[in-house]
């Protein structure tokens, strides 16, 4: 930027490739903070259930810490943005473990049913709740096929600057939108899974054929949960 280019020119030049290299091996997806997100990218996650360990809760812990989801000792009303799901095949007893969260559908039922438009899908595929217009009717929770949403049943305090949350609104996984917009190219859960050495969760751009997530899906295939609903989820699973 000291080369006489404006920030926007600099980013446009780099943005053509989708990413810029800050240091060898460190890529940052550059998004001009002034520019709106576009559908040129579609953010998503790929979960390899073979790499996910049943006794590991690192992704859940990381999410809770990232967004300060507190354990209030009331499990039926406490918010869970991501949970570990154990799935057992009654025939033979094969058991797999996987993280379940908002699947960031292309055609989200929660968005369809929301009376005020507070549930919405960003251009880059992230499904969010605009808590400024959420009236707390909970119809989205009725509609979500994945049980991905939580209602805030009490007054909250100590919210973090990047994770505003409060009583009377519905919330769910934001795909760490604050990290995505900051160009970090990861989510708290993917980061934690990586750190724990399991590498079961991969974050990336599903629209970019050269991204790691696209390459892996192309090579090994991946499934949607409740694919029969035709929602085209942004979170895909391998080895279900």
């Amino acid at each position: 930027m000291s080369l006489g280019l404006t920030r926007r020119e600099f980013l446009q030049g780099a943005g053509a490739a989708g990413a810029l290299t800050l240091a060898p091996g460190v890529f940052l997806y550059a998004k001009d903070p002034e520019a709106p997100v576009t559908d040129a990218v579609r953010w998503g996650l790929l979960v390899d259930t073979r790499l996910c360990q049943e006794d590991c809760n690192a992704c859940v812990d990381a999410c809770n810490e990232e967004h300060n989801l507190q354990d209030l000792g009331r499990p039926e009303t406490d918010a869970q943005w991501i949970r570990k799901l154990t799935v057992r095949d009654p025939l033979g007893g094969r058991t797999i473990s996987l993280p379940m969260m908002c699947q960031h559908c292309e055609n989200p039922p929660c968005v369809d049913v929301c009376p005020t438009g507070a549930s919405f899908r960003r251009e880059d595929g992230i499904v969010l709740v605009d808590k400024h217009t959420c009236i707390g009717c909970r119809y989205c929770m009725m509609a979500c096929p994945y049980k991905a949403r939580s209602f805030i049943h009490e007054n909250l305090t100590e919210q973090l600057p990047d994770a505003p949350r409060g009583k009377g609104c519905v919330e769910s996984c934001t795909l760490c939108v604050h990290k995505v917009d900051a160009g970090e190219n990861t989510t708290a859960c993917a980061e934690a899974c990586h750190k724990d050495g399991h590498q079961a969760i991969l974050f990336g751009d599903l629209n970019d054929p050269d991204s790691e997530i696209s390459k892996r899906i192309r090579e090994f295939g991946a499934t949607q949960i409740r694919a029969d609903l035709g929602l085209n989820t942004g979170v895909r699973y391998q080895n279900l």
Binding site: P33, N155, L156, L160, P161, R165, A182, G183, E184
Partner: peptide, 27 residues
Amino acid sequence: FECHADRPHEAYGAISRHSRLSLNDMF
């Protein structure tokens, strides 16, 4: 402030992950 943090980033010193370097911070 029922939902939003009421203090600047630096007040959350203990949670250093939240004052991470990012392009936005640079700008």
